[in-house]
Amino acid sequence: MTITLWHFLAVAAALFGIGLVGFLTRRNLITMFLCAEMMLQGVAINFVAFARYHGNLDGQVFVMFILAVAACEAGIALALFVSLWRRQRSLDVTDLQDLRELGTPLAMDADPLVRPVEEPDPTLTPAGARPQPTAEEVARV
């Protein structure tokens, strides 16, 4: 199988599309941002493929700049998300609803996210005592 330009374009479009869909559907800020980055990677593949196709380096140069800019954006994203997390302990975009049209109700999920239940911390057997195997363990041994 020869790999033609169209294969690259298809992969790029798929990456871009997945990123777009992910960006629009996911709720975690970091995931959303990564989806946007994924879109950028799709673009990068496009550029590289076209660069090869046209036999010039313009596309590759473009990719380098895309990467650089993506890195800058990632840096800013990280800083922003850290400060967001510090303030509200959540990176869920549905928590970002303080700014909205007057009189619009909060957008609520039909089935809200189930927050994991905190389990009580386990404890060790006090020093000196033999650990008491559970019935299950006894049966297994």
Partner: peptide, 20 residues
């Protein structure tokens, strides 16, 4: 394969783990 409850706790040098 002999899992026990204590074997499956986080190992923190023999201390009770405090917090997550």
């Amino acid at each position: 394969r002999k899992p026990t409850k204590i074997k499956q706790m986080p190992y923190e040098s023999g201390m009770d783990p405090i917090g997550s």
